[in-house]
Design a protein around this nucleic acid. Structure first.
Lengths: 335, 335
DNA sequence: TACAATATTGACAACGTTGTCAATATGAAG
DNA sequence: CTTCATATTGACAACGTTGTCAATATTGTA
């Protein structure tokens, strides 16, 4: 099946031990032979089998950092992943990915190509990076998407009703008398951001309100993004009476900006967010939010992935979970 | 060195294949023989070598969840761990630990005893659990403590100047004219909590202020802990004019409670925290805090652990990093 | 040139498990 | 009591690498 050290040795006309020496950068190989071996390695695409190395060296090449469960080092996604780590026979490796960062890319490549992992779950916006997606598909590694931007070629995915959630929240704001609603959008390479935007627009239309480009600010889904966008919004001649932040972090930034401006929430401006991943209820006055079912999504995606890995049948290849609205203190009827 | 399937087979008087069948709960073993084998397994303390299994089955038994680096799923500790995951040859497994939760205990036991990990870093208050510490020491697994409650028997550790940080912050509050300072304490099984408490007391004494038991509330280092403690503090006949929360989360809870009570921060009450692990600057009005050097601590602990794992010499076995004070908007001179 | 010292290379065992298949024991049916 | 089917057991190869040690080639020194 895969290329082994033996294949390389044969083609290069030397012993497997010599190949081993080249791979491990040991001394005692003539430059000539080394180059020949390296060429063959390159040509055949040989990667060492880490399990064999682990066995013979009696080493796992894995280390562990133990967190106490009482810790605060956990947003709800990570927290759920860590919980799932208790179940089953799998260790779950959490890995971050910066598309443009070569060390990140080569780490992922090594995980995939050396078959150090049996399967992979990707979260947005990882899946908007063609290099990564291409590599995963080439490798035929079992793969499950979370909220993909573009559910390609039958790859199973798990997602949530972002559209409906945003629609319902927007209708609720409209019902409170708000007709100028600021929108703090996330980046467009994120499926969830797009769906939330569409849901927002649909609710406006449904209520005969025009979508006002000026009130929809492209910002990143983070604190400074929300902060800056809110400063812009409130600086308009006709500022909004409500702000819909498409992420918790942007909402926190918005609230900070409103506080700084001396604007009272919710009496002067209502604020809502999308996510509710952890601290929406920990900042005053508590942010009314669309709850994103991140625990269920993570649990399902891992479960699907394990089925794929174990070659068990997948009854459903797409799962979409509903969102719910959590009422807190940051919304009020427009005065 | 360690017990293999062959040792079990020999002692039980059967073939290794039969032992394998028992271990993997396959059919075709008479109950009699199975019991005999199980007894031997128990007696010898046999655990299967996962690397061998991985090799022969061509499976890694590890799965990966990929997070985009832009994510918000990261407090600074996890964030740092994930960054370190790019470097070196090690995959870093993040595992949580609930002392009283048997599934958690058996997961850790399996990681340690099956040698699925080469080494372990523990964070408080993991190290206050004797079951765990005992298991680690029995196993002789390379081990580094972060801020241990009780630096036992030469185990290397990394920590910070909790005492000095608390001392300096307390002096700063006193310098602002506060002489009734509420203290939101963490649990006593946490080294850092104790040291911070001692630093606080020392600063009071130094300034001829008595430590007031009533103003020091035992609370957990989390949001509800800080919230409840603050409600108690502000309900006193003589409430404090400043509050020192020994964690960011408790500070967030305190701020929420103060807001709820209509008490203005910092004009009526000053609030400071210890940690500054991420969102202290994202909640209004920004919390003045002692910065805990978590990135350096994590980086050093992992570096030390890898040296231990690779049998390289450790020039220093204890490292203690300084803390710094970050001034924000939550402190003011007492009126 | 001869000899020792050193550098290079390879044959083969070992790591600890699971899979294959043959050998044997047991039970059922005639 | 046979005969056949099935359940139980074990011998041995295989997985892909690294470590050991011996064999050979090369270099340096007298």
């Amino acid at each position: 099946m895969s290329v082994t050290i033996r294949d390389v040795a044969k083609k290069a006309g030397c012993s497997i031990k010599t190949v081993s020496r080249v791979v491990n950068q040991e001394a005692h190989v003539t430059p000539d032979l080394r180059d020949r071996v390296l060429a063959v390695i390159d040509e055949l695409g040989y990667v060492p089998n880490i399990s064999a190395r682990r066995l013979v060296q009696n080493r796992s090449y894995m280390i562990c950092i133990l967190l106490h469960a009482s810790g605060v080092f956990q947003s709800s996604l990570i927290s759920k992943v860590l919980d799932l780590g208790y179940e089953g026979n799998y260790d779950i490796l959490i890995q971050t990915y910066y598309p443009a960062f070569s060390r990140s890319q080569s780490k992922i490549a090594s995980l995939i190509n050396e078959r150090r992992i049996d399967g992979l779950v990707t979260t947005p916006p990882c899946d908007s990076d063609p290099y990564l997606i291409n590599m995963i598909q080439q490798s035929k590694l079992p793969h499950v998407h979370i909220a993909p931007i573009n559910p390609t070629g039958g790859t199973p995915y798990v997602s949530a009703e972002d559209y409906t959630g945003a629609y319902q929240m927007t209708e609720r704001l409209i019902g409170l008398g708000h007709y100028r609603i600021g929108l703090l959008m996330g980046l467009r390479n994120h499926r969830t951001s797009l769906d939330r935007l569409y849901g927002f627009r649909a609710a406006l239309e449904r209520n005969d309100l025009a979508f006002n480009e000026q009130l929809a600010i492209d910002s990143e889904n983070n604190f400074p993004g929300g902060y800056n966008a809110t400063k812009i919004l409130m600086g308009l001649k006709q500022p909004p009476s409500a702000i819909f932040a498409l992420s918790d972090e942007a909402a926190a930034g918005a609230l900070f900006a409103l506080n700084e401006l001396g604007i009272k929430v919710p009496h002067q401006v209502s604020l809502v967010s999308f996510g509710d991943m952890g601290f929406s209820h920990q900042i005053w006055p508590g942010i009314t939010a669309v709850k994103y079912p991140v625990e269920q999504i993570v649990e399902q995606s891992v479960e699907m992935l394990i089925k794929l890995v174990e070659d068990r049948p997948l009854d459903v290849k797409q799962m979409i979970f509903p969102t719910t609205i959590i009422e807190r203190g940051s919304t009020a009827r427009k005065e």
